[in-house]
Design a protein around this nucleic acid. Structure first.
Lengths: 131, 131
DNA sequence: CCTTGACCCTCCATCTACTGGAAGGACCAT
DNA sequence: ATGGTCCTTCCAGTAGATGGAGGGTCAAGG
């Protein structure tokens, strides 16, 4: 199977698949003419990668997850630990974004948004320069 | 004032301040020996930048915000529009992260985390490869 | 006068996870 | 033979810094 078909079936752009090969996440075979030749196994890994990335795992975590997936001696504890670490990071990001959102929403609400130059948003940004 | 003092007062690393100069966000004067010489105005801008960045505005948006701040003919509507755009992006990111979080938490909760190799997290990641 | 240490400078490389594009080969239909 | 659509590799660029090499500057101490 060539790269565009593999991309279509795995839900990934061809560019991304080549990149994943570059960094060693997959090793598709090659046809006589040098074209990549994707097996069902390759497709499986690609779809696994797509889904793990969609859950926000980093590429290195995806590499570990693929390793665990392939490793018959893994324990679910190993996987759970990785997932918990990631969840913690997601929660940290959420907390930061929510804090940003609250401040932004507050400032926007306070801003009249009219033709006057007076703006509490700019005032707030500048204020910290003084405080 | 030299760069480390400016950094201390503005709450930014010296590296970041040099970077901001590189991309034209500030133009500190130079002393005879080539050292940067920061004015109160420079400090003001740096602190403004730090705070705008902390609210998640991109560097280009920060450039626009600084421009508006300096522009006496601005309207608060201009600023509010920028802030609203940014809030929308923050909300989009929040929605995505919350979706990730829900899925992750669900999978983690379903995983026994023991010595067995059976793991619903890996199963879920692999499943999409089949579905 | 010399050295030591703490600054400062510029320039280049690195990070994440791709994405875009150039230059050229392969293949199929007309 | 020619056009169009695939494929290949390699290089550059994105955002926003951050780390480090290699070297200049300056004040204090001996």
């Amino acid at each position: 199977m060539n790269i565009s078909e593999a991309g279509r079936r795995a839900g990934l752009p061809a560019k991304t698949i080549r990149f994943y090969e570059d960094i060693g996440l997959i090793q598709p075979a090659r046809m006589g003419n040098g074209y990549r030749d994707f097996s069902e196994e390759d497709l499986h890994r690609l779809a696994f990668l797509r889904r793990a990335r969609a859950l926000g795992f980093s590429v290195e975590e995806c590499r570990q997850l693929l390793g665990l997936y392939q490793d018959r001696t893994r324990t679910s504890a190993d996987v759970k630990r990785l997932a918990r670490q990631h969840l913690q990071r997601v929660d940290d990001q959420l907390a930061e974004l929510q804090q940003m959102r609250a401040t932004l929403a507050h400032l926007i609400q306070a801003c009249s948004g009219d033709q006057s130059p007076d703006c509490p948003i700019l005032a707030d940004l500048a204020q910290s320069a003084k405080g």
